[in-house]
């Protein structure tokens, strides 16, 4: 015979954080996209979706496989990734530098801030005709479009991050007699890092956005070119491969930035952690 000890009825309060979003879900950012995919598959399988209008996911996968086999996908992807990488490599340091100069001196701000705000107000596509006139329709123009587009969010958010650094830290830096270089390294840059990384998240998605626009104009390589060509032949499945590719690239570059963000800002205790 077993004895069951009767426990006193103590009500322990559950240790939950009622107002916090809850524990982190692994690869949580993929949940939404997968739901969308499932919906698309269901609509195609049930015949609700006309394949001439939108090809089924498996057709797209098949086409992607064919494109990979023939080497066309890799070739075009490489061309696109190179443009984006170059655009980021030029635009990000430039935007950061401008933000630093503008954030740390009144004169810098007076000179730099205005033009960037104007650039922001003008739709980037409106600048395309001018850029084409100046730089032609080659690679230089494409990379410039991306770099200039990336520069703006980096500048805006880094500058904002700089300006919101607590003045008490500046005072501290003065009392311990920090030199200017050390001040920038230990106070300014880390203080502006959250802003910079937010700008980075906008920048990577912006980069892919401008890539499409640039590649639709007289390209002979790139995902955009591949899609434009498919349009003339009415191949929706190739267009879809391109769209999915853009989506994936955007999603993963954003995830990469977020990963860096989590690592670099581990000192922060925020709502999201």
């Amino acid at each position: 015979m077993t004895l069951v000890a009767s426990r006193p009825a103590v009500t322990t309060r559950p240790r939950t954080h009622r107002l916090r979003p809850g524990a982190r879900i692994r690869f949580g950012f993929l949940v939404g996209p997968f739901l969308l995919l499932a919906l698309w598959a269901a609509a195609s399988a049930s015949g609700l979706l006309d394949p001439r209008f939108l090809s089924a996911p498996w057709t797209v996968i098949g086409t992607a496989a064919e494109l990979i086999e023939s080497g066309r996908l890799q070739e075009n992807l490489l061309a696109s990734v190179q443009r984006v990488a170059l655009g980021l490599a030029i635009g990000v340091p430039l935007g950061t530098l401008l933000a630093l100069v503008s954030g740390m001196s009144r004169w810098g701000e007076a000179v730099i801030d205005g033009p960037i705000q104007i650039k922001r107000a003008v739709p980037s596509l409106a600048l395309m005709p001018l850029l084409i006139l100046w730089l032609g329709i080659g690679e230089v123009m494409k990379v410039t479009v991306i770099a200039v587009g990336v520069l703006v969010p980096i500048y805006i958010h880094t500058h904002n991050g700089l300006r919101t650094i607590d003045s008490r830290y500046v005072e501290l830096a003065e009392t311990v007699g920090l030199r200017r270089g050390t001040f920038i390294r230990k106070v300014v840059l880390p203080g502006a890092l959250p802003g910079f990384l937010l700008g980075m998240r906008f920048a990577v998605t912006t980069a892919w956005l401008f890539l499409v626009v640039a590649e639709l104009i007289n390209s002979t390589t790139g995902i955009g070119y591949m899609m434009d060509l498919a349009r003339t032949y009415g191949q929706t499945e190739v267009i879809l491969v391109g769209i999915v590719l853009y989506g994936l690239l955007g999603l993963f570059s954003d995830a990469a930035v977020r990963l860096v963000e989590r690592r670099a800002l581990s000192w922060r205790r925020t709502l999201a952690s």
Binding site: Y169, L172, L178, R179, T182, K186, P190, G191, L193, W267
Partner: peptide, 24 residues
């Protein structure tokens, strides 16, 4: 050589404790 202690500890949140102590 003058040192100041403020009412708030005023540690740089992005620097570890030791780096705060030897700041500069």
């Amino acid at each position: 050589q003058v040192s100041v202690v403020f009412q708030d500890a005023r540690l740089l949140p992005w620097q570890r404790v030791l780096d705060n102590v030897v700041l500069g």
